[in-house]
Nucleic acid binder design. Structure first.
Lengths: 150, 150
DNA sequence: AATTTGGTGTTACGCTATAACATGCCACGT
DNA sequence: ACGTGGCATGTTATAGCGTAACACCAAATT
């Protein structure tokens, strides 16, 4: 993402938080900025490294707490199979999403398919399960790596 | 699972491996047995602990290598959001599956819904993604914990 | 017998995540 | 202005998950 878009996204996040009575503090804002800057999912320790370049030594909890906040407010998603974090593509409308992840280059694309979301919820209901969170990730090869392979 | 069923499952696994020219060695067989014995997903280090009760001190690689083998032959599944391993419900027919996991008690149920499998594969294809592996996990509350909560 | 192959044992380490406690800051009521 | 309560952050230590690298051994192959 380019600088201008990042600024816009940050402002929007700021507004959303204010509306909810939540505080997008400097650390949280900075972590979100770092995540927005990378188009690929970023690991907690990579974020920690970047954070430290500005503020000196910090511990993992600082980053993890910021991530927890951003996740709770759905400003970012966690990609479970990569243990990494990626910016949410549409923070105005909280949603469940799915991911396509390239095993080769790590490229990760967010999808939104309501059919899958509903299928899973229904399957849960049928079994008496109250589904709170969905993790749907498809791993494989992205178009680029696929053609590079041949 | 009760002892008799475990024996049956182990024999079946044995046969399947032989058919494929793969070796279900004592360690691998024992790890599979441990996983079959537990109806909930089991972590690698819990398995390691059990293994050690029979064979003295062992390192993590021993367990992880056995798990790798069992996964490769689809005799077990990995539940990503729990970092734990569970027996496959139908080893005769390799398949993609989905999981419902209770956040409260950890109870985990394997589902098989072809619709979701196909949806994901199609979504990938449409984007040029070659989907190799699907991770579909729904977290929430199981019926028991749900009623206990009120 | 020599070689190769695959499985296991062993040590050491890296990455991911959280517990527990200390400190600091700010909004609020009085 | 003052204290206080609540939330955010800093700090240290540690737990949990996973793998690299090398040594050893046994069975299969030549």
């Amino acid at each position: 993402m380019i600088a201008r878009q990042i600024e816009t996204a940050l402002s929007r996040a700021q507004v959303i938080c204010k509306r909810r009575g939540a505080r997008l503090t400097p650390v949280r804002r900075r972590v979100l900025e770092l995540i927005l800057s990378s188009d690929q999912p970023t690991g907690a320790y990579a974020l920690l490294g970047e954070l430290q370049r500005g503020r000196g030594k910090l511990g993992p909890p600082t980053v993890y707490r910021a991530l927890e906040f951003l996740l709770a407010h759905k400003l970012i998603h966690k990609v479970e199979t990569s243990s990494a974090f990626i910016a949410c593509a549409d923070i105005e409308h909280p949603h469940e999403s799915q991911f396509m992840i390239c095993d080769d280059c790590g490229a990760t694309e967010e999808l939104r398919d309501e059919e899958i979301v509903e299928s899973l919820r229904r399957l849960g209901e049928r079994r008496g399960f109250a589904v709170e969170r969905q993790v749907v990730e498809a791993r494989g090869l992205c178009p680029a790596c696929r053609s590079a392979q041949r």
